[in-house]
């Protein structure tokens, strides 16, 4: 299990390549890469991501341990950035590995659902229309019910 909460950019290819080479029993690796997106109607200049140092790591480690246990993962990796990010930049990388694909798919899905609304990050968008904190979506909260 490896977690990194960091300000600096990361290189997904290198991270996935390294993750993929770690274990010979792995039959499947699922990766998710979340990016900063700009809307044509409201051009985003940049995004500021704030987090709660200490709690962020604890909360994500707990999710990762739960995912490993529930889907008997061989390994998992989470990298999540904070600070200033411009459209096109990568925000989050989740990678899960297991013997067979189903477990890796589900565990990655689970981790993303929990990262969305149970990891203490807050996004602020700065655009030509000013600045605004991103509001949480009900659909993200409801998504957690799938894992009960």
């Amino acid at each position: 299990m490896k977690l990194s909460v960091q300000e600096e950019p990361f290189f997904p290819d290198g991270k996935i390549g390294h993750f993929s080479n770690l274990n010979q029993e792995t039959g499947a690796i699922v990766t998710f890469l979340g990016k900063v997106r700009s809307d044509p109607e409201n051009h985003l200049d940049y995004m500021l991501i704030e987090h709660y140092p200490g709690m962020t790591e604890k909360a994500i480690e707990k999710m990762m341990a739960e995912a490993v246990k529930r889907w008997k993962l061989i390994d998992c990796l989470v990298i999540h950035r904070y600070g200033k990010l411009v459209p096109g930049e990568d925000i989050v990388l989740v990678a899960t590995s297991s013997k067979h694909r189903r477990e890796a798919f589900e565990a990655a899905d689970y981790l993303m659902d929990f990262l969305k609304s149970r990891a203490p990050f807050w996004k602020k968008e700065i655009s030509q229309n000013g600045e605004a904190w991103v509001e949480s979506k009900e659909i993200d909260e409801l998504a957690l019910d799938r894992w009960k």
């Binding site: 979340g34 987090h51 709660y52 709690m55 999540h80 925000i91 989050v92 993303m112 990262l115 969305k116 609304s117 149970r118 990891a119 203490p120 990050f121 807050w122 996004k123 904190w133 991103v134 509001e135 949480s136 909260e141």
Partner: peptide, 10 residues
């Protein structure tokens, strides 16, 4: 003790 609005990670 920390207070905050709903989280928006990911």
């Amino acid at each position: 003790i920390a207070f905050f609005p709903p989280m928006t990670g990911g």
